[in-house]
């Protein structure tokens, strides 16, 4: 899969710093699952974070018990170099558009992409406590279901997400359904837009991040397909139109309501929640 639209550097930096609102963080994590380019960019921002950390003025710890010798007093000696199997250090990379689930190895070769026997979901590596330098995030349930069903379908050679049929979509306006997802900061929702639908011209009070999960749309900025992310801020005015012949499913994170330019959508706003 080739991804043509990437995250803005400002978003990358804030994600690396840990300061994105939760809704955006979830969406960015989903995009990173597919996008090596943005993963590398995040690594740069983390390198910068480490350098800034080193450049900080040291602030001595006040707690006396925090002296390293005391901290380690009760600790057993560290085991000599542990052999870690390659698979434990592998990275799961789920490629939505091609349906391929690949394991990018840290070592030279990966023997077995460990697939879960029941749902075909790749067995993910360790919990954050086992590998504390890895970032992990719990996905909202419907989103996780979409990923799971997609993996399952793709293992049988299908290319589309069928799991979306099972989700409790709510109709917004004819041709557009949505499903609000839980998020502790910001708004996160799934949108399902029938082919050929035009979303009224709107701009944004705050930021809007859109990740295409299936299908595609076009707007003033280009064509957006599965894996692409549209990272917009308030200066952007756009009117997306879905193309192709399958519904366009996307994940949308916003931190403020959208501003519609026409009267009708604005009147609909109280009902649609945008």
């Amino acid at each position: 899969m080739s991804i043509n639209h990437h995250l803005d550097d400002a978003t990358i930096l804030s994600y690396a710093a840990g300061s994105l609102p939760h809704a955006f963080e979830v969406l960015v994590a989903c995009h990173l699952r597919q996008c090596q380019h943005c993963r590398q960019r995040v690594a740069e921002a983390e390198l910068l974070g480490g350098m800034l950390l080193e450049a900080l003025e040291p602030l001595p710890l006040r707690d006396e018990a925090s002296q390293p010798a005391l901290l380690l007093a009760d600790m057993p000696d560290m085991p000599a170099t542990v052999d870690i199997p390659d698979s434990a250090l592998s990275v799961v990379d789920i490629d939505w558009a091609s349906g391929a689930t690949t394991l990018a190895a840290t070592g030279a070769d990966v023997a077995q992409p460990g697939l879960h026997p029941i749902n075909g979901l790749p067995e993910l590596p360790d919990s954050p406590h086992q590998q504390p330098w890895r970032r992990s995030l719990i996905l909202p349930e419907p989103l996780e279901l979409l990923y799971q069903s997609h993996c399952y379908e793709s293992s049988k050679g299908h290319d589309t997400i069928s799991g979306h049929e099972a989700l409790p979509w709510k109709r917004l306006v004819p041709g557009i359904q949505h499903l609000p997802l839980e998020s502790s900061e910001g708004n996160l929702r799934l949108l399902k837009i029938a082919p050929g639908i035009s979303i009224p011209l709107h701009s944004h009070e705050g930021s809007e991040l859109t990740l295409i999960l299936q299908g595609s749309y076009c707007d003033e900025l280009g064509r957006f397909q599965a894996g692409d992310v549209a990272d917009l801020d308030c200066d952007t005015e756009h009117q997306p139109i879905t193309d192709g012949n399958e519904p366009c499913i996307c994940l949308v994170a916003t931190d403020a309501p959208l501003r519609f330019n026409d009267l009708l959508p604005r009147m609909l706003q109280p009902f649609t929640g945008f």
Binding site: H22, V42, A43, L139
Partner: peptide, 27 residues
């Protein structure tokens, strides 16, 4: 950073689902 985020979110995030998103193929 991960410990800090965990700490901040502990109260907010429910123990549901086990999806872990990892990314570490960078060099």
């Amino acid at each position: 950073r991960n410990l800090y985020i965990d700490q901040m979110r502990r109260a907010q995030v429910r123990e549901r689902g086990k999806a872990k998103l990892v990314e570490d193929d960078t060099h």
